[in-house]
Each structure stands twice: as C-alpha cells, then as structure tokens.
Nucleic acid binder design. Structure first.
Length: 209
DNA sequence: AGTAGGATAATCT
DNA sequence: GATTATCCTACTG
C-alpha cells in the first residue's frame, strides 16, 4: 500500500504504518521504532491543535505528508508528520529510531557513548537528523524538502510485534494509548509519566494574610 | 536503577 | 505569567 494513503487515514493507524519506515535528512537515515499519534480539534486534548488553528498549528490542518517541527522546553526540536485528511488536524510524533545510515554524521551532531542513544527520544531524533523549525511545512513524501520518508524496501515482515501504551510525558489524556513501538527494539525510549514541575522562585502562590 | 532538579524560550491565556 | 509531546547531570540506594 502507498505510504501517503496510509498517512491520510486515522492518525493511530497512520502511526502504526510509520513504524519501520525510514526517515532521511542531513545525510542520516533512521528506521523508526517508536511514534505517537496526536489528533485534531476536540478529540484529543493532548494535541497542539486541540484548541483550533493558531499560527503554530496551521500546518497540521493541511494535507498529510508534511513536516510539523515544534520547539519546546526552550531548546528542543521535535519532528512530526502531518496525518489525516486535509482540513482535519492530526500528526504523528517521530519519537525514536535506529540509525541505519550516516552514523558518522549522526555522531557528529550528537555526542553519545552508545549509538543506540543517537535517536532514542524525539528531540534526539530531530537533532541526529539535523532537523529544525525550518523544515516545517515542507513535504516529506515527494522529495522536494529536506526530510524524506519512505516505506521499507521489502515490506516489513508480518508478525513483527507492535506494542502500544500511554504517551510519554503528556499531561492530558493519560489513558489514551497512542504511543506505538516495535517490541524488543533497544532504541525505544523509556516511558515517563508527566511530572508537573513545582513552582520555582517566588513562593507567593497564594499571598499570606 | 531510579529519581530529582535545572536549563531555557516559544506559545497561548 | 503559566505551561511545556525533553534532555542531561548528579545524586541516592
């Protein structure tokens, strides 16, 4: 089946279809082992597009197959593939994968002891690929942009176990099991529950008196 | 092995 | 002004 066709379907199905695919950018090729689905207005409170169109989320309302790269925690970029039919927001976060080509380039961008940590986590993956916000709005499926996405050459053998569970570090909708990964892959990142940060600095949360 | 805290800036309320 | 779809280092057992 066509990859773009799969991306046009429901985001959770699209997410599953993306496992095993190759993402290429900056001379590095990564085989995806872990992804998360985020869906549209109203349905999924964890989606950036949940509250509707904003300058940032505009891309998610466009056609599938385009890159949505957001900046978070003051220092990290995370790469998403826009999914679902045009007009209906949705995206799949590329969380982790195995570097299958361009290991040297990936090592150059990320200083790690173990190669398995090169793209184990969404910000690490984006960094290994050298992807940042400039890729937002470019196509990942027609070869015109800096990032490209392809199905594995021979289709993935059936019987490869796909696991699912709650999304990592997400505050909203902790029970939605929209994180998908390939069982037994060492490059899958560790699960962490969302931890609200204690208020820093001023303690005047509620003024005494 | 597991947890705790800090870094640091865009985005939205 | 609060919040954040993270990562790294340092500390504890």
């Amino acid at each position: 089946m066509d990859l773009l066709a799969a991306l046009t379907g429901p985001v959770d199905a699209a997410a599953r279809a993306l496992l095993g695919c190759r993402v290429a950018a900056g001379g590095v090729v990564i085989r995806l082992t872990e992804v998360e689905a985020y869906s549209g207005v109203g349905l999924d409170a964890a989606s950036h597009a949940h509250r509707g169109r904003t300058p940032r989320t505009e891309v998610m309302f466009g056609p599938p197959g385009y890159a949505y790269v957001y900046f978070t925690y003051g220092m990290h970029w995370c790469l998403n593939v826009v999914c679902g039919p045009e007009g209906q927001a949705g995206a799949v976060l590329l969380r982790a994968g195995e570097v299958v080509d361009g290991v040297e380039a990936a090592r150059e961008r990320r200083r790690v002891r173990d190669d398995r940590d090169l793209a184990r986590g969404p910000a690490r993956l984006a960094q290994a690929l050298g992807v940042d916000g400039r890729a937002t709005g470019t196509s990942m499926v027609d070869g015109s942009g800096p990032v490209s996405l392809e199905s594995p050459d021979p289709a993935p053998p059936p019987g490869v176990a796909v696991r699912c569970g709650p999304r990592v570090g997400v505050a909203a909708e902790p029970d939605r099991e929209w994180r998908f990964w390939l069982a037994g892959e060492p490059t899958v990142s560790a699960y962490r529950r969302h931890v609200p940060r204690p208020r820093r600095g001023g303690d005047n949360q509620s003024p005494v008196r």
